[in-house]
Amino acid sequence: MSENSADSATRSAWLFLAPALFLMFIFTVAPALFSLILSFHDFKPFSFAMVPVGLDQYMELAASEDYRASLMATLQFAALVVPGSVIGSLAVAVLLDQTPFFRSIFRTIFLIPVGISPAMAAMLWVFLFNPTSGFLNYLLSMVGIVGPAWLSDPDWAPLAVSLTTVWKEVGFNIIFLMAALAQVPVELQEAAWMDGANALRRFWHITLPSISPAMFFVTVVSVIHAFESFGQIHILTRGGPAGSTGVLVYQLFRDGFENSRLGMAAAEAVILFIIIGAVTLVQFFVARYLKGAPQ
């Protein structure tokens, strides 16, 4: 009897989920599967012919200097963006948590960049980064520093692109970290205070471990976003100068839509998927290890 009703509950659950699942299959699962199939083919865009090439495209990527450089650019980008946005948002969240008066107004201000499109955000920064008339170099000149050519100097472009990305992403992280900070019981802080822990120690021994699930989430999402960034790079640098910001997604875009090698682009997408999946998995294992290990 109860089994039956459980069965029918399951059945109606599937029924309600069906439209969503159908759409998800059409727009997410099917294209992903098609990409996988495509990656083993050479796709001719004009004749729509698919010539099976096996692993050839993967081999070509493995041997490609350009692709390796692109991978390095991506890692550099992630190495700048992830710590920047995680630590930056943590710092802002902690500051806002301490100042109830400014909390909601600043939370809103920091959330604005999240809401605007990457292209818009990047346009804004194109102006800010302008070496001669940009606001950034104007500020630097006030303290006697001649600012660099942010977007056309290969040494500075990765930093400029990362800065824009961090600016755009911190608001999202701040929301989650502030919510987590608000959950840390005041009594824990007070108990640690009575135990002789100063503010820094309390942050390190009490606050940080208490918000570690949110930190983990924010880090994983930041890593994924970093590997997927495209819009701001396209507008700011077009992968240049000298390939210094030519991240994997940009390479993919170029191969697929400028060089019309859709099969190759599909292979790159599959590799990117594997990289992101692997990095995320590693993060999960590290988090589990840290949680299980004695502090």
């Binding site: 019981p185 824990l188 007070e190 640690a192 009575m194 009490i206 471990p209 502090q295």
Partner: peptide, 14 residues
């Protein structure tokens, strides 16, 4: 001075 709190306030991760 040491204080014992009503809801113990033990550090959950330790």
């Amino acid at each position: 001075i040491a204080m014992v709190f009503q809801n113990y306030a033990l550090y959950p991760h330790m």
